[in-house]
Computed example of a mutant assay.
Amino acid sequence: MNNELFDALSQLEKEKGISKETLIDAIEAALITAYKKNFGSAQNVKVTINRDNGSVKVYSRKEVVENVENELFEISLEDAKKIDPNYEVEDIVEKEVTPRNFGRIAAQTAKQVVVQRIREAERNVIFEEYVNRESEIVTGIVQRISKGTVYINLGKIEAVLLANEQIQGEIYKHGVRLKTYIVEVKKTTKGPQIVVSRTHPGLVKRLFELEVPEIHDGTVEIKGVSREAGSRTKIAVYSSDPNIDPVGACVGQRGARVQNIVDELRGEKIDIIKYDEDPAKFISNSLSPSKVLKAVINDTSNDKSALVVVPDYQLSLAIGKEGQNARLAAKLTGWKIDIKSESQYEGSLEA
């Protein structure tokens, strides 16, 4: 190997941040394998690369012993002393065994190692970039769809949108720009894998952070999100500033802000709920768009439940289609909610 290789290694150290010494150590280790493979040798060997002139040398290594049991790995003390009288038992005797044409093999091996390490370094850079972006939104372009999995081009890497992270009924077409939520970034043998989601409640939360400046700057706080992706989401918002209407800030002028989010989620309905420290008020708010006449709280150590009374004509609205409104409200508040119409409630009191 020549000095051009060392110049290239020095350049890589500057550009890719790969230590020159680490690369040389890796090349030496690869050359040991290459030597054994190409020359059918099973003996212990050491490969050294001269840092000044790039010359490569191979040395066999044998341990000095009293009685030789394996000639590939051992040398008798008697024979060792013929080489150098200072050798003692357990010393290692090294002898140069560099093949005549080993320089060509060394050059090929070095190139392979360098290419591999560059690839690993680039993968590590991408991994480090995205592992710190877990729970964030990324925008990409649908690249391809294979066996139900959607692959999204993020620029440097593809993200994977698995079937269980896709919104039911949502159609993903090639070339369409899509916002997704990073669920997990993991290392694989093929490089970093970025798993994204369209169904995660965090996607809605991040979309509101992008769309509503008051959330981004902390004036308005998101207290919770409950979601049935593709159908409906409830999001609880709060502001410690009495002059700020948290719901109004999220809705935006003429509903522009929330409409942008609804459009991004392909028409998913969004209920923006005002959070309240008082559980009765929060539970009442969470059942929006239904009106609540009364909420009775049962807060014991074993049971966090609430009885909610709504007007007779709004019972089905409060419960929602297939119980969805009540289910999302319960998930959002963390309370079990029993909904009764006004007449049902009055009947139970009379009974």
Rank of each mutant, 00 (worst) to 15 (best):
P246D: 08
G320M: 03
L287F: 00
I337W: 06
V113N: 03
L315I: 14
A80H: 00
G323K: 13
E122R: 03
L162E: 07
A159C: 05
E4Y: 08
V183R: 02
V225L: 02
V258C: 11
A330I: 00
N285G: 12
G224T: 14
T139Y: 06
V114D: 03
V262W: 07
L293P: 05
R100D: 15
T22N: 13
G155S: 08
G224K: 15
A107E: 13
V220T: 15
H216K: 13
A249L: 03
S240V: 12
E63G: 13
D278A: 09
R144T: 14
F73P: 00
A256K: 06
R104H: 09
E268K: 02
I137L: 15
A110V: 04
A42N: 14
G175A: 00
E94C: 00
T189V: 14
A229Q: 07
G323F: 04
S288I: 07
G347V: 13
D338P: 11
K95A: 09
V183Q: 01
I337N: 04
I272Y: 11
L265M: 05
Y172L: 12
A110Q: 06
N325G: 14
E277V: 07
N3A: 04
A26Y: 03
G224S: 15
V58C: 06
K36T: 04
N164G: 09
K291V: 08
L154T: 04
T189D: 13
V113C: 06
N70C: 13
N243S: 10
S240Q: 15
F282L: 07
K190H: 11
E74H: 05
R257A: 00
E134K: 05
K46T: 08
K321A: 11
T180E: 01
P246T: 11
C250R: 10
N67I: 12
R61P: 01
V58K: 10
A8Y: 07
V220I: 11
V185F: 13
E96G: 12
A106D: 09
S231F: 10
R227E: 03
E342K: 14
D338F: 07
V258E: 08
V56K: 11
G323T: 00
N70R: 11
T188P: 12
Q43H: 01
V220C: 00
